[in-house]
Nucleic acid binder design. Structure first.
Lengths: 233, 233
DNA sequence: AAGTGGTCTAGACCACTCC
DNA sequence: GAGTGGTCTAGACCACTTA
């Protein structure tokens, strides 16, 4: 049990991870308190706390005052998912990213979008459709609604240089939002844009972005056939 | 600029978030160093550090020694994605979760799986197929390969009470893994199991789980039609 | 060389919660 | 009431990066 020398929080964390993976501490087990662990590892309680807090935040440990720290019963895997700008994602693959605005109009949004936007019925919102290409191959089709009440300057925005995606990020650093991932059947319209067969199964992302409690934009991204969103545990 | 009273790290973090959202600090801007912020907020540098480190970890700030802290130029949105047990996910909706083992056999895996498993060519691996239902409605179809070298006890495991999913989590708390999300076209076989039309677009998750550098299991989960994976930013 | 973040320490007090 | 985690503090030293 050579536990000496663990005087920094990362090595403490690694040791704790190891003990859980090796079943030295099993799911549901109470592990020693911070003071005792600090003694064992030869570091201060602060360092142990730093190590354990992150593990608890990641779902591997359950911590309660007085009750102590237990190995989580159902180790919920918490993956970190990076949602980069489309341009950054494409360029990270070494491809050239271009975008084209296919549609730009003010019109009442469909009911499903309106509800999310809390717009008046029949109120016109800015509707944009854009296609992003990687080395001139269709990559993702963007169908976006923007709330002009929240971002009035969007009316005169020029999306030829900065894509809607980038323009919005710069204008309105969003503080909240939710994301949903799903599969969708390729419609004939989308098929023409993405150069894929109608009826194909396509990966789609629906994202709603909020700022100061108001919905800024609601967007659906439909990716090219075969697209995979990867991440690590 | 009433910045007094921010003597705990959460309120410091909130104030920093606010300044970025309100464009007081713009993308690319250098923000004051920790010592100055500590003075301004009337707290110790440790507290400021705690607040800023988490923001940097979340991608909102870029920090470099000597160069200082800047608001990230491309604010990468980092969503936290919880990957619960299938049973937990279904029961969280208030439904009753059941599972049935449809296939259980030792056989050589297809090439695509073998490569990931680093198995010998034609080496037999354990192949499982299972269906999970929510209130007896098909929810997700699981197609899994398990490496018996890593988990020998899997050969005699009983999956009637504990699903393969749960059994593995208890036996081998994985420490690593990767996940990919994609859309897939429903094959006739899967259609029969999930009670959906062949050709439908289905959401699928491919997951590979590692323990101590070895692949434990490789699984594809194909969800029922209309399934959406949600998360928040 | 110097400025900045990264981390550790020892001690302290508080908040929660189980008994 | 008592044990545990949550957090703050002041100070210190180190590691890295830029100038």
């Amino acid at each position: 049990m050579k536990a000496e020398g663990r005087n920094n929080w990362k090595s403490v964390q690694e040791e704790v991870r190891h003990r859980i993976a090796a079943h030295i501490w099993r799911p549901g087990d109470l592990i020693p308190n911070e003071v005792d662990l600090a003694k064992e590892f030869g570091c201060s309680r602060t360092t142990v706390n730093r190590a354990l807090q992150e593990l608890a935040d990641g779902g591997l440990l359950d911590r309660k005052r007085k009750a102590g720290t237990r190995v989580a019963h159902n180790p919920v895997r918490r993956a970190k998912l990076d949602i980069p700008l489309i341009r950054a994602e494409i360029e990270a693959k070494g491809a050239v990213c271009r975008h084209a605005i296919l549609t730009r109009e003010m019109r009442p949004a469909p009911a499903s979008v309106q509800v999310g936007m809390r717009a008046e019925p029949n109120e016109a919102l800015l509707h944009l459709q854009a296609l992003y290409t990687a080395d001139d191959v269709p990559y993702v089709f963007e169908d976006r609604w923007i709330n002009p009440h929240v971002v009035p300057s969007v009316i005169d925005a020029d999306f030829s240089v900065l894509s809607p995606n980038e323009w919005l990020v710069r204008q309105v650093p969003a503080d909240e939002g939710d994301i949903a991932f799903c599969a969708t059947t390729c419609s004939p319209e989308v098929a023409a844009k993405l150069s894929c067969p109608p009826g194909a199964a396509l990966f789609a992302v629906d994202r709603t972005t909020m700022h100061a409690g108001q919905i800024v934009t609601s967007v659906r991204l439909v990716f090219h056939q075969g697209y995979r969103l990867r991440t690590q545990l």
